[in-house]
Design a protein around this nucleic acid. Sequence first.
DNA 1: GGATATGGGAATTTTG
DNA 2: GCAAAATTCCCATATC
Length: 227
Amino acid sequence: MWSVLGGFVGAGVGALWDGGHCSCEPGETQSDLEVILEFLEEYYKQNAGENVDKVYWTADGESYEQRWMCYESPIIKPALQPLLAHDAPPALRHNTTETLCERGSLPNFVSTRQPTKHPTTTAGSGRKVRLFHFLFEMLEDPNMAHCVSWVPTDAGVFRFSSTNKDQVAALWGQRKGNKRPMTYQKMSRALRNYSRSGEIFKVKKKLTYQFSRDTLMSLQKCHRGSS
DNA sequence: GGATATGGGAATTTTG
DNA sequence: GCAAAATTCCCATATC
C-alpha cells in the first residue's frame, strides 16, 4: 500500500533510471534536471494507457490520492518547536517515526482549508497533495534513499542528496503537474515556508530539514493506517 | 573568485 | 471574489 510510490520509483523509475543518464545522443549536453525531465516524460509515455494507473492507484483499490486524505494539517502553532534531536528522548533518537507515533497522542487536526470537493491533480482525483506528504513518502521509500534519506541519529531529520536533490524536486513537480520544471531551489523555498507554519524546520546543516514532532507523528499514523 | 546552499521579499498561480 | 498554499522570480548572503 504505502509502497505505491516505491513501486513507481523502485520497480518502474528505478528500473528505467540509470543514474541520471537517459538515452541522449552522443555529444549532447543536458543538465541533470533536463535529463530527469526527459526521463520522466519518457516514463509517462511508456506507461500511458497501460500502467499509468499503477502509478497512482493501488492494487487494493484504494487510491493513492486517498492516502493523503487521512492527514489534515496540524493546528498552526506559532510556538511549535522543532523536534530537535538533542531534545528528543533516547527512544526517539533511533530515527523511528514509529516510536514517535507510539509515544504521543496525535494533535487535533484542523485543516485551514476544508475541502469541499476533490481537486483534479495529475494523478486524477483526490485531495491536493502537500509537499511534506510527498517528502515523507519519499523518505519511507528505500528506493529513494539515494535522493533523500533520514538522518539515522536524529528523529525526524532528513537530508537531500547533493547530487540527486533535483530528482526529488522534479518528481514533485511531476506529481503536482506543474507547468514549469520544479527545481530544488524552488522546492526548498516551499520548505522554508513550512517553518512559518511549524511543519518543517531547517536544520543548520547542508541540505538538511526536520519534520516537527506533530507533523511527523501524524504522517506516521497516516502511513501505518494505510499500510 | 566561483560554485553552491541558504534565506527571504514579493508577485503570481492554483485551489477550495 | 476571497483566502490559503504553492510556485516562481530575483537578489543577497554565507560557506566551502
